[in-house]
Design a protein around this nucleic acid. Structure first.
Length: 898
RNA sequence: GGGCGCUUAGCUCAGCGGUAGAGCGCCUCGUUUACACCGAGGAUGCCGGCGGUUCGAAUCCGUCAGCGCCCA
């Protein structure tokens, strides 16, 4: 017997272990079945499951379980990425707790600690994924730092280098002073900051008393100024172009150049140019061949090495001693000191409040410092071309389609990708340097040595590049590196390219785009056919969830409270395409009742001896009830399947919900009760057969989204061996004889009972009062139907009998029209006839208004001439129906007239 | 500044040319043995404003307003 209450915690773990132990999640490269592949977006190895993961993995698991049931050889590739900065941070913090600094113990020792940490804590998220029910092929779990994946990284790096698509370059890079590493432009987010716009007076050379005023938000970088730029069209400065200004504090002479970068509308119209510390200034510097001295070091502190030679003393303008005093000061301290000194020298014109977008490291949260350094770059523009083309030609499709715009906008204007990171944890760059500085990129040190020998003519000691690669570099290879590439493997053959990539729009650039670039370049094809982009999870007020706001909800807590199925079903129901999902505890709690409903319906079946019956043949059923529910079940199968094919999780969940609750429970089981309570007839056997068949269909249909509950019921009922539903085949519609007639009959019955219930409720008739239903003007067919369903009508309609009124039988009471008939409920003593007349009048008015509206439409010659014939016909029918309804209501009112 | 999305019942959202929908909430009634995480019934909408296209617009086009996001 099923327990009275649904207790997900009592079976979830057992079922998951059962599935996993039986190898139910495994892909079968050797099978002939069509593959269906989803590559997991590898979660960060330091991470733990948050609600956003719950969303994306619920969708992925639903798709993978559904396709697996459809007979596809499903591969859902699991794994995690090594998260360079995040992981290094975590371990550094741990070591700091023991008083150990990374640099004290050295690289090798530090990496040992990282691996140790990974062994202990790195599996967190994969354990949590299991609680969610995610059916990943765990035997194939990969990690981006695995030997195989690392080999793939080296192979890609060396190949792209050989092809000239990876190169070293000295240019401005986003430097994170906290983590002491370069980061890519994607890892920078701009934050609106309140600051000041300082208007500084730079003396014009040779024109005593004349100044050119420049406006800047970063006065501390002035030490590195090498020019002043004004707009070529700006009359105010025309005579100054080509002249020189004296850089205050430093004393360097700097040219005044004309460049369109300077915006006459902004600030003073003149802008100081610091090529080594600003991306725009860098471009100006290139255009005008300016020197590019750096004046801030890796920590964002002032350094003077590169401008030492420029320092000059100029009375009232520049003082080398002051500048030297800045050496080693933090950039923000230096800013204060410099502004104070300039104010003392009366070289500050004005200071206006100003807010501007300041780039911050997305992980460190500190302002990014553009720095001129030597880094490794990947020629993303070249790699992007085939990826762009694949989307343009529809070889790769975004769902919803409008996300293509985001993809295109970035890909068509893509910048060189800085791939080197000054970290220890990650894939060390396979480049070696000879003492003379020559660089050798090779798969192994031996190869590098051989190259060096060839080039330099002698054996030299090589030192390896200390830097590692951006984590996303290895993630970009994920769709093929996990399958064994660069080796040729059966997996690579069968599962590449994959079918669908599921992810949020926030990582289209980080990951989707880069996978496409690498996939095209190394595999000759996009790594997936469809990119399904879902929204992000927000709290109930629509705010982004964040720890600092304290509005995060823990998916595991929700699983504990309501069960994984409730969380999953809630997510699926709310996952409208491309839209962010507002999710709170309450929403999940609400959806829990659906699982309870199924559980109780199953209990009811169990109590009535409804259970698996392999001999039941749905194509042989004869009773209208069985035909009707099987037909409705067919419709539900088609709807659910179509929704999944269209990635409409909400429609899939909705179709299942409506079928289970509104068809199976509300009507079918209720209609079945008389037969189930009666003697063992052929009819009863057929109803039971249909019930068990449809219950089985429901369990199959819902299994992808509610795997635990459905499997538990499947097993407990004995539809199959334990843990077998996951491997069952996806339901198909069956041919149901006489479906149309059954639908007409049951639809009539439902509307009769609904109408009777409605009028009784409106007239406040207690359910304890039962009355005959007298069908005025009913056809013989209607009367026959009433006779066939008399038990259900009695039970659900609180009726004693259903028949035509006798000739001359005068009945006063409530009345309601159903189809061609008017149903009379003799309630003269129970209800207020005046109120009933008023109610009928209201109904009549409604029918009348409807009829008038349709009549007006039909009276429009243009409508009749131009609208589609079927629409015109439909309106003619509606008019006739409305007129007949008015007539019946008139008759009804006449019947109870005073 | 450029681009995208959203605005439909109290709330959350479907619908995207032919009779305005769902879930939750709300109100009324209910101990009919599957289910109160329930059942029956009910109320609630100038489908953001204004123009246009069309026989017909929540749906298509334009425009304005508000909200949100992305890129500079």
């Amino acid at each position: 017997m099923l327990e009275k209450n649904l207790l997900p915690a009592s079976f979830e773990q057992r079922l998951y272990e059962g599935w996993e132990a039986a190898g139910r999640f495994g892909a079968h490269p050797e099978s002939a079945a069509d593959p269906f592949t989803i590559m997991i977006p590898p979660p960060n190895v330091t991470g733990s499951l948050h609600i956003g993961h719950a969303l994306t993995f619920t969708i992925q698991d639903t798709l993978i379980r559904w396709r697996r049931m459809q007979g596809r050889d499903a591969l859902w590739q699991p794994g995690t990425d090594h998260a360079g900065i995040a992981t290094q941070m975590v371990v550094e913090r741990l070591l700091a707790g023991q008083g150990v600094q990374r640099r004290d113990i050295g690289r090798e020792k530090f990496l040992e600690h990282v691996w140790e940490w990974k062994g202990q804590s790195g599996g967190n998220i994969t354990r949590q994924l299991r609680r969610l029910g995610a059916s990943l092929d765990w035997r194939r779990e990969r990690f981006t730092m695995d030997a195989g994946l690392s080999e793939a990284v080296r192979e890609v790096f060396v190949t792209l280098h050989e092809q000239g698509l990876i190169y070293r370059d000295r240019r401005l890079v986003n430097w994170d002073p906290k983590f002491q590493t370069a980061i890519s432009d994607l890892e920078v987010e701009s934050r609106e900051m309140k600051g000041s716009l300082w208007h500084l007076r730079y003396p014009v050379e040779g024109e005593a008393g004349r100044f050119i005023v420049v406006a800047t938000t970063r006065p501390e970088t002035m030490l590195g100024d090498t020019a002043i730029a004004v707009h070529p069209e700006d009359e105010r400065f025309r005579d100054l172009v080509g002249k020189f200004a004296i850089l205050p504090l430093v004393g360097r002479r700097i040219p005044i150049v004309a460049d369109e970068y300077s915006d006459p509308e902004k600030g003073s119209g003149a802008v100081k140019i610091t090529p080594a510390h600003d991306f725009n200034d860098f471009a100006v510097g290139k255009r005008h061949g300016l020197a590019m001295p750096s004046v801030l070091d890796a920590y964002g502190a002032v350094m003077l090495e590169e401008i030492e030679g420029d320092l000059a003393a100029l009375e009232g303008v520049a003082d080398p001693a002051f500048v030297r005093s800045l050496s080693g000061q933090d950039r923000f301290e230096a800013r204060k000191a410099i502004v104070a000194e300039l104010e003392r020298l009366e070289l500050v014109e004005t200071i206006e409040p100003h807010s501007n977008a300041v780039p911050h490291g997305d992980r460190s949260g500190v302002p990014i410092e553009p720095r001129l350094t030597l880094q490794w770059y990947c020629d993303a523009a070249t790699l992007a071309k085939p990826a762009i083309e694949a989307v343009e030609t529809g070889k790769t499709e975004f769902v919803p389609k409008h996300f293509e715009n985001i993809f295109f906008s970035w890909m068509r204007d893509i910048q060189p990708w800085c791939i080197s990171r000054q970290l220890w944890w990650g894939h060390q760059i396979p480049a070696w340097y000879a003492p003379d500085g020559s660089c050798f990129v090779a798969r192994t040190e031996e190869e590098a040595l051989a190259q060096a020998r060839q080039k330099l003519g002698a054996d030299v000691a090589l030192t390896r590049d200390e830097d590692v690669l951006d984590t996303w570099f290895s993630s970009a290879l994920w769709p093929f590196s996990t399958l064994g590439w660069p080796n040729k493997t059966p997996e690579l053959d069968k599962y590449y390219p994959g079918d669908v990539l599921v992810t949020g729009w926030d990582i289209i650039f980080f990951w989707v785009a880069r996978m496409m670039m690498m996939g095209h370049h190394f595999m000759g094809a996009a790594p997936f056919k469809t990119v399904y982009i879902h929204g992000l999870v927000r709290d109930e007020k629509g705010q982004k969830m964040s720890k600092s706001k304290g509005n995060v909800i823990d998916p595991l807590e929700l699983v504990e409270s309501f069960g994984a199925d409730a969380l999953r079903f809630a997510i699926a129901s709310l996952a409208t395409p491309g839209r962010d999902v507002k999710l709170g505890r309450k929403r999940v709690e609400d959806f829990r009742s659906f699982g309870t409903k199924i559980w109780n319906a199953a209990r009811f079946c169990e109590m009535n001896g409804i259970g698996p019956d392999a001999s039941f043949d749905p194509s042989k059923v004869e009773t209208p009830l069985a035909r009707w529910i099987l037909d409705a079940s067919n419709a539900a199968i088609l709807e659910a399947t179509a929704a999944l094919e269209a990635y409409r999780m909400d429609d899939y969940a909705g179709a299942c919900y409506r079928f289970v609750w509104n068809s199976f429970c509300d009507w079918f089981l209720e209609f079945a009760k008389p037969a189930l309570n009666g003697p063992d007839t052929a009819e009863k056997a057929e109803v039971k057969g249909a019930a068990q068949y449809v219950l089985g269909t429901i369990l199959k249909l819902l299994h992808p989204v509610m795997p635990y509950l459905t499997e538990e019921l499947w097993d407990r009922f004995g539809y199959g061996p334990d843990c077998s539903l996951i491997g069952e085949s996806w339901p198909q519609p069956v041919a149901v004889p006489g479906a149309e007639a059954a639908r007409a009959e049951l639809d009539w019955l439902v509307s009769l009972i609904s109408a009777v219930r409605g009028v009784r409720s409106e007239m406040n008739v207690s359910p304890s009062v039962t009355v005959p239903l007298l069908a005025q003007g009913a056809t013989p067919e209607t009367l026959a139907r009433g006779a066939r369903w008399i038990d259900a009508i009695r039970r659900l309609g609180r009726a004693t009998e259903f028949r035509a009124p006798e000739a001359g039988e005068a009945v006063k009471g409530a009345q309601v029209t159903v189809g061609e008939a008017t149903i009379l409920l003799p309630l003269a003593g129970v209800i207020d006839l005046a109120a009933e007349r008023a109610r009928l009048m209201k109904e009549r008015d409604k029918a009348q208004a409807e009829g008038a509206k349709v009549a007006q439409k039909l009276g429009n010659a243009d409508f009749v001439a131009r609208a589609k014939p079927e629409v015109v016909e439909e309106n003619r029918e509606r008019l006739a129906a409305a007129e007949a309804e008015v007539a019946r209501l008139d008759a009804a009112m006449a019947r109870i007239a005073e």
